[in-house]
Design a protein around this nucleic acid. Structure first.
Length: 394
DNA sequence: ACGTATGATTTAAG
DNA sequence: CTTAAATCATACGT
């Protein structure tokens, strides 16, 4: 029985048959020569069973093959490729950074594109190489396995009659099995190539603006968290999901938004008020009773009604004049200020930045993300030293 | 055709 | 890693 198990392992594992058993046919012959016929029948059944295996099992087999045979060689080849591409990338990077200061941007762009193409081609070559080596392995394994089985049958033919038809059938089965595995390999390789290509083309694809709904969602979040517009990882994920974009795109968006908002707050007043109204309305729908309960202490909290004016410029100016009062009420409502009175908050922040010096420590703290702003850039935007910001245009 | 808006990338700092 | 800031490259409105 021990002999049988040995043979079975040889049959069920491609790696096994590819290595030792075929490598030493005499051992096989010796084993099978003294074997009772019933064992041979069992073995044949085992062989037949191979055809009934699922693709998963085939995959597992492939994995086993990967693990045992030619693995070191393949691995070293892959390492070589990786090292080569890594070197190229590093060299390219160094070159870019060196040129960056002295050469024009068009050179850098060309370099980048060239590098991308290089990277793409290297990866493609890598995939191709892996595919071919795998294919070769399978072909070899197939022929070895076929030989193995043929030898087996030939030995058996001495003890029992085996028709050539039977042998033919066996060989056909083996070939079918291997070709199906090879097809799978081919398919997965094609898939990999397609993914690579689509990524490569994606990188060069023209920029697309996010759709309106997406920017609306993002803006809503931004202006309703104006005191701290740094969404957590979870928040980013949710926003990404809601907007149908990636998390990194959300991060990009917030990065751009923060810097652009900070640079020219005046320009974003209209937008801010718009979303302030939106979030205020939303908040009102949720906690209308609560805010009403608070209203006696804060008579001016009803003023967001003025935000509904379609002439946002007027709204802004009005808010500005109300600022003194707004300052008094805002701190008492701080936990809700962001959602209930964003515009007030915002305007106050603007006043602070524009040098009006009317601020509370609380507000300063809340808007600390803008603290590093160069105040002059707000009061007098970079470029033409115009008298003042959008106040005049508004 | 041009200027502006905007998403992405790069660089440097923490 | 994340972020601010600068910059790039393209989309888009006029």
């Amino acid at each position: 029985m021990d002999d049988q198990t040995r043979m079975l392992t040889g049959l069920t594992g491609l790696s096994g048959l590819a290595q030792a058993d075929v490598g030493d046919p005499d051992a096989v012959r010796k084993q099978s020569l003294g074997q009772p016929q019933q064992d041979i029948g069992d073995i044949l059944q085992q062989i037949m069973a191979i055809t009934d295996e699922s693709l998963d099992e085939a995959q597992a087999r492939k994995h086993a093959l990967n693990c045992h045979r030619m693995k070191p060689a393949l691995f070293s080849v892959l390492c070589e490729i990786k090292e080569k591409t890594g070197c190229v990338r590093a060299r390219e990077r160094r070159r870019l950074s060196r040129r960056g200061s002295s050469c024009s941007s068009s050179w850098r762009l060309a370099d980048r594109q060239q590098h991308r193409a290089l990277d793409y081609r290297a990866k493609l070559a890598q995939i191709r190489q892996i595919y071919h080596s795998e294919l070769e392995k399978y072909e070899q394994a197939c022929s070895e396995f076929t030989n193995h089985v043929m030898n087996l049958l030939r030995e058996q033919s001495r003890t029992r009659p085996i028709s050539p038809k039977e042998i033919e059938r066996m060989v056909a089965i083996i070939h079918r099995k291997f070709s199906s595995i090879q097809m799978q390999l081919k398919q997965s390789t094609c898939e990999a190539v397609m993914i690579l290509r689509s990524r490569f083309l994606d990188a060069r694809r023209k920029r697309r603006n996010f759709n309106k709904q997406a920017t609306e969602v993002l803006n809503e979040y931004f202006y309703s968290h104006l005191s701290n517009p740094y969404p957590s990882e979870e928040a980013k994920e949710e926003l990404a999901k809601k907007c149908g974009i990636t998390v990194s795109q959300v991060s990009n968006w917030f990065g751009n938004k923060r810097i652009r908002y900070k640079k020219n707050i005046g320009k974003f007043q209209e937008e801010a008020n718009l979303y302030a109204v939106k979030t205020a309305v939303d908040a009102a729908n949720v906690s209308a009773q609560a805010s009403q309960a608070n209203s006696p202490a804060t008579p001016n909290s009803g003023s967001p009604g003025s935000f509904t004016l379609s002439h946002s410029g007027d709204t802004y100016l009005g808010l500005r004049s109300l600022n003194g009062e707004a300052l008094n009420i805002a701190p008492s409502l701080q936990p809700q200020v962001d959602t209930l009175h964003p515009a007030t908050h915002l305007t106050a922040g603007y006043e602070e930045l524009s040098g009006s010096a009317l601020y509370t420590p609380h507000r300063l703290d809340a808007n600390s993300w803008q603290d590093t702003t160069n105040t002059s850039s707000v009061t007098s935007p970079p470029g033409p030293p115009s008298s003042d910001h959008s106040d005049t245009s508004n």
